[in-house]
Amino acid sequence: MPTAPKGPRLRLPAGLPVAWLGLLPFAAFAVLFLILPTMKIVLGAFQAPDGSFTFQNLLDLNTDSIRSAYWTSIKLSFMTALLGCAIGFGMAAAVVFGGLPKAIRGPLLTFSGVASNFAGVPLAFAFIATLGPVGLITLWLRNEFGINLRALGFNLLSYWGLVITYLFFQIPLMILIITPALDGLKKEWREAAAVLGATGAQYWRMVALPILFPSLLGTFALLFANAFGAVATAFALTGPQLNIVPIKLFAQIRGDVLGNPNLGYALAFGMIVITALANFLYIWLRLRSERWMK
């Protein structure tokens, strides 16, 4: 982060507290509705029902059911973030570098804006209507080709079903974020690399990807958190029985299915830890990779 310009700072000492008062409403909002609630969870995760400090809640997370919920959630988030990044990157690159007509670009970005926000309950409906037991594609494949998706082992209400569904908002999010970054790659870099004897692959490996690395990584972390915290799509698709962390937490908040309120805190705390880890990893890698930035 650049330090603030020196000019205003020299003037500030006397006026500093007054100027900071201007942030009071924002700070109050952040404390009341973001930080305190989060703190409540974090502290609760380390409290016994009588209020005393304990690690028991975190230790109690170590059951087969909860472990597998975390593992499924992490796999799901990782896979959808990875595929979302790869496919989104491919589509954005096709539009920016692939020589596709310029007219495609605007509609693609608008559509991406829509699709990345078309998440949650209605998205689940759309996929049920398409790949569900009597969905459009399921029926079409069965009636026209005699292919029975279910017999082939495909089930929308499964891990891979969720992956396919989540990609509907993950890919457009990637397109939205990476397109400006691809635009930022100057034509001259590619040309300079070419006249210096580099192949297209060498240019991508030595110049373009290192330059894009921070954006790619940041988007990956964002997509990961996006999938990890998503409740509505999974809930509307599969109901409360699917064993992923956000669904488990949802059921716990509604009805204390774990039979221990403080275990709920620990469950939520685990979610914060994982998304925070993903983001710190991103920030750390980004700092390392951005030595060359102003």
């Binding site: 100057k186 300079a192 192949t199 110049v207 330059i211």
Partner: peptide
């Protein structure tokens, strides 16, 4: 021939140095 097989050198108008390399 493709540009990378011509053994030529080029300077561009915008500096075009690779920003991620020293």
């Amino acid at each position: 021939l493709k540009p990378n097989n011509r053994a030529i050198g080029m300077m561009f108008q915008a500096y075009a140095l690779f920003p991620n390399l020293t």
